[in-house]
Amino acid sequence: MINFEYTKASSTKTAIDASLKNNNAKFIAGGTNLVDLMKKGITAPQRLIDITALPLKNINSDAKGITIGALVANSAAAENETVKTKYPLLAMALNAGASAQLRNMATVGGNIMQRTRCSYFYDITMPCNKRNPGTGCGAAEGYNRMHAVFGASDKCIAVHPSDMCVALAALNATVNISSSKGDKKILFTDFHRLPGDTPELDNNLQAGELITAIHIPANNFNKAYYLKIRDRLSYAFALVSVAVALEVKNGIIKDVSLAMGGVAHKPWRLTAVEKFLIGKTASQQVFKDAAAMAMDGATTYEHNTYKIKLGKAAVLEALTKAVV
């Protein structure tokens, strides 16, 4: 690992100021992704700003929703009673990610900022427009079994690796951000970017901006399920995942949120399927019809055509398990 300057910030303001003084500075909290990327030589910040002393570790909930501080560990968020009872989809998604050790280290803010696990991005001998813009996409013509079927570009077909983010996209969360210009909120579904011509940009966070919390608005969902399909039963990234939350009253779907992971550069909301489901009976036949349209508009590559069939089956299973 290339050495770097280390500073520990004592307040959000000093952290932001320190990041503005060096354009090759990065914030570090859990470090589970960043330290790994630094070991591999994928990123080499000149300065790391340790933000773990900042007062961003609280979980507050009220009638309007729940606000989870950026420095809350993934395990702490997953074990929080309010999260477990009122936002079970988030708890399920958190527990589907990584391992117990990593969930103890990784923070909610860091989870949002984690980078793709595309093997071409991770191998510095390979071309990758995300790691090294202009070098090409190794995956497009390469071994692309894990890659995107929605929203990709000819520059990049990587997928976002997070489980937690799929649940947050489904739960209409917002990201709270601080900068020297003040505080702002970004809708979670607008936070991450599609690759387009600039795959080096994973999200819309600007220099000098720091994630302080995520907020999930209160909802009336009474059924939820997070389904993750992977190569082994635990501790692997998703081939395809589905986050579903439903409000079912007297057998009728009053409201529904559906998002998929492992299929795009960002958590992928299935808005057309949601529209189809609202007002219908929560029955197997309706779920089958919904699943049949789930992968409409997908584009596959040589090794990931299986994601069409798998994606439809996963949507059906997630909807079915949610209402059981």
Binding site: Y6, I28, G31, T32, V35, D36, A100, L102, M105
Partner: peptide
């Protein structure tokens, strides 16, 4: 419990 290899 944590992974000490990923902790500075």
């Amino acid at each position: 419990r944590i992974n000490s290899c990923l902790s500075l």
